[in-house]
Design a binder for these strands. Structure first.
Lengths: 251, 251
DNA sequence: ATTTGACATTAACCTAGGTTAATTTCTATG
DNA sequence: CATAGAAATTAACCTAGGTTAATGTCAAAT
């Protein structure tokens, strides 16, 4: 990982971890969590725009995102980039269980980010000793697939306005549980180029489409703040279905 | 599931299962497999074009594909369809671990297909009693994500020729281990409309692009047979990387 | 052998989104 | 507060791929 990363001194005990409410360990009993903690190797804070791992390289850590935004992306030989997913607080990062295989994508922070680190070597041991955790991870991974299927539909079968509407709603709904006080406005650190590389358009066309959405009073995006102006119309434009997005276990 | 489905009388014991060489139980010791077998509820043969489950409906079985082709897809409110993935022999089907949540996509056979059936209720029990299996499933699911990321790149950032080249190579390499005697020609049951709905194009443009690939001596597709004519050029056109595709544990 | 419906093929035309390039904000830094 | 690089915005023009629609081919069913 990048050298600017600093390992924090204070190590939050897993039982006090704020992301427990959001992510993987939600349903694990207290005792289970305390046992899991011993596999953890630490916690670290990364500045914005830090590469966490690079496509093609072997990488020996797994992470849970504590706070901040991370993006996963692939780079093609012609230089273009496809962003695969945004990883937010409570999400799992770099889940590729075989430590010998090089990563197939890269990960980079968008904002300052705090990660909780597990060495990959401990994973199989953790699985064997705590099958509960393996089951939880399977569940999360299955939901990640569901999300990436939504992205496939979004890029493969929708027009520009629909694609943006969907992206905004998807992110809005994943940010909401972290900041319940948030109204219709969330902090949104993506540039228009990031948006373009997420939904398979060019940045110029993203800009045009944003203007059209703004002029129609659907969303407003500026200075890294996104405001949902007309939620119902946006939902219907995007063909948005909450169920396919949420990372929390669904009741 | 469809009523035309017939449950076969003869039940292959899991230890003799031909897909064991390909799929999930590859690394499980014999004794483990015998124990897993008791969770199985049966084996069934479905004709081509059978709906296995439908988007929006709760579905209480999990499957391993024994022989045949299955496609997963989503249908939008405007009637268009996005194919998400082809499920081949040895692959896992409908992995959505929470039985109460409706399926987010549909599954339909393309050819006659034999499935091995697990009731979903047994899954958590299986996980708890056999963490080995949970770990294997995690591994497979992680690889499914890798594949769907490849699809995202394919649709989001490549032109028509590149998309088709990639699809052909991806499928070719997944079919190969099943039929080692196959030369450069494989059976390829997709229609041009299926191809279009997989790579985010229209069937008319798929036809045009196929002609162009044929005229340049790259691939030949007719009568449900696909022939790879110029493998190296196809690989370079597609930006194809084997590692991201294979479902087998890599080394 | 004929019918039928599904699938493939082609042509003519059109448009959503891409390309290029210039200009205008921001925002971080000295 | 000045400056530079990053990000946003806009306009003019272009093309890859979409649309419509007609025709051809094949295989299953009678």
């Amino acid at each position: 990982m990048n050298t600017r990363a600093k390992k924090t001194n204070h190590q939050t005990p897993c039982t006090l971890c704020p992301v427990r409410q959001l992510g993987i360990f939600q349903r694990l009993p207290e005792a289970e969590v305390i046992k899991v903690q011993q596999y953890r190797s630490g916690q670290c804070v990364l500045p914005a725009k830090t590469l966490i791992y690079r496509q093609g390289e072997v990488h020996n850590h797994l992470y849970t995102v504590f706070t901040g935004w991370v993006m996963l992306y692939k780079t093609l030989s012609n230089g273009s980039r496809q962003i695969l997913r945004y990883v937010l607080a409570g999400d799992f990062l770099s889940f590729q269980p075989d430590a010998r295989v090089p990563m197939t994508h890269s990960a980079q922070t968008l904002t300052e980010t705090t990660l909780c680190v597990f060495p990959r070597q401990n994973l199989m041991q953790l699985f064997n000793e705590h099958p509960e955790v393996a089951a939880q991870i399977t569940l999360i991974t299955a939901r990640d697939i569901t999300l990436s299927y939504e992205y496939l539909v979004n890029i493969g079968r929708k027009n520009a306005r629909e694609r943006l509407a969907f992206l905004f709603l998807e992110i809005y709904h994943r940010v909401l549980p972290q900041f319940p006080e948030t109204g219709n406005t969330i902090i949104f650190p993506l540039t228009q180029e990031d948006i373009a590389d997420t939904v398979g358009l060019t940045l110029v066309h993203v800009n045009r489409t944003l203007r059209s959405l703004r002029e129609e009073g659907l969303v407003q995006l500026s200075h890294h703040k996104l405001t949902i102006l007309d939620y119902p119309r946006l939902v219907s434009l995007a063909g948005f279905n909450l169920q396919n997005i949420m990372n929390q276990p669904l009741l």
